[in-house]
Design a protein around this nucleic acid. Structure first.
Lengths: 231, 231
DNA sequence: ACGTGCTTGTGAAAGCATGCACAAAGTGGG
DNA sequence: CCCACTTTGTGCATGCTTTCACAAGCACGT
């Protein structure tokens, strides 16, 4: 029951590792573009901004894809990580809320290259509906269920105002969408089994402000502290 | 040397706690808008989407601001968290890269209300320079140092293409900006003491895809798994 | 065929974060 | 004034993450 070689990975890659795999993938693709064939954990770790022991442990969760004394074959590793992340299949994404941010996402080219295809745009504003954004017609949010079903959407992105976000999320879920990326500044309530990730610009700024203040306090209070001057 | 009451908090709030304080703050402000005067850890935790023990431990790092048997006074807690996060002062933010995303951020009203003021917009495209976005003139990126100094910018937001991001980051740092929020899909290299946070849309989607695939694999392989059907 | 040198993969230790469960501390009613 | 009730603040146990340090393994030159 524990024969590893044929199907190397067990279920259960740590969450922290999953969050770093896309970073490794991007670094590897950059190497690939430059024609690099193999890379050591040290070099890849430095390109990805992590420590090499962490990188090796992360990769070890996918299987034993390196060669001792040599490193990792870039192309093979790109494939293995892509497969693990589910990027070898095609994911249809719907964006709800075509304001500034929704438009910015719709026009962002970075998705298409990695298995994500923007399949539908939805908005509640009648003036918006029917307009063409990034070569897609904006549909009215009332058609959410139809649109999800007919275009096979499995990931929903919410860029609506905060007040509408929960409603849209609930409709996504009821239409069978179990993965949601939420940009609205609210905590979404969804049933178990639905995966919500949140991106919140204002929270990131607040975290930066906290650290900036701490630096400033330290400088003021205990004269020079470790920090900027140790380079 | 360990007298607590007068200045309750020691240095060193855990990073995980810092990341949640903005969420609590938002939930508290929503309560405040509804006229709520006090709130229990249970109620606030549920509004913030966390468990109440975690909330209490988080808040205990700031000091003892609750009343046993009653809860927390909303207004007082808003003030304490704001102060801890450094939101009682005003932070000048510069946005470099006025593409779709940069414009979306510039026009997003959510910052102003919480101590952040967009003080400058920068772009490398001569056609963009001089245009007015969100009532600010776009300046050429070559003026970065001048702009930072003259407007007192202390937080830099990078929404440039990936290829330009590292250059802009380096210039921000040399101009004295020690807090950077990076939307470009690259790992930035900065000296110690500079705080970089990354927001990466494509990474979030990839993490969602991973979990979505895992759900699908499970359903296919071991018939029905725990998940959507347990509601 | 064998030894040398390099790099991976992984136990084991240390460090964080989470959640339980309860004592401590306050409120309000009788 | 005391008792019952509520809710905070926190010690402790558990689990997850990171980091160290080194044995195992492979390539290459001789």
């Amino acid at each position: 029951m524990t024969s590893r070689p044929p199907r190397p990975r067990e279920r259960g890659i740590p969450e922290a590792t999953v969050a770093r795999l896309p970073v490794y993938l991007r670094a590897l693709q950059a190497l690939q573009d430059r024609g690099t064939l193999t890379v050591s954990s040290e070099a890849l770790a430095s390109a990805a901004g992590v420590n090499s022991a962490k990188l090796r442990k992360d990769l070890s969760h996918l299987g034993s894809y390196g060669t001792r004394g040599v490193g990792y074959e870039v192309e093979y590793l790109v494939y293995q990580i892509s497969r693990e992340l589910g990027l070898t299949q095609d994911w249809a994404v719907a964006i709800a809320g075509i304001g500034n941010l929704g438009r910015a996402l719709a026009n962002y080219g970075g998705f298409g290259t990695r298995g994500f295809r923007i399949a539908a745009l939805l908005d509640a504003d009648p003036a918006m509906v029917g307009q063409s954004v990034a070569s897609l017609d904006v549909r009215h949010i009332d058609n959410l269920e139809d649109v999800v079903r007919s275009t096979g959407v499995s990931i929903g992105v919410i860029t609506t105002p905060a007040a509408s976000a929960q409603g849209v999320a609930t409709r996504f879920v009821q239409a069978g969408v179990a993965s949601i990326l939420n940009f609205a500044p609210v905590v979404l309530n969804v049933p178990d089994g639905v995966d919500v990730r949140k991106v919140d610009l204002s929270i990131e700024l607040q975290i930066l402000a906290f650290h900036a203040q701490r630096r400033a306090d330290g400088d003021g209070r205990d004269a020079e502290r470790a920090g900027l001057e140790l380079m």
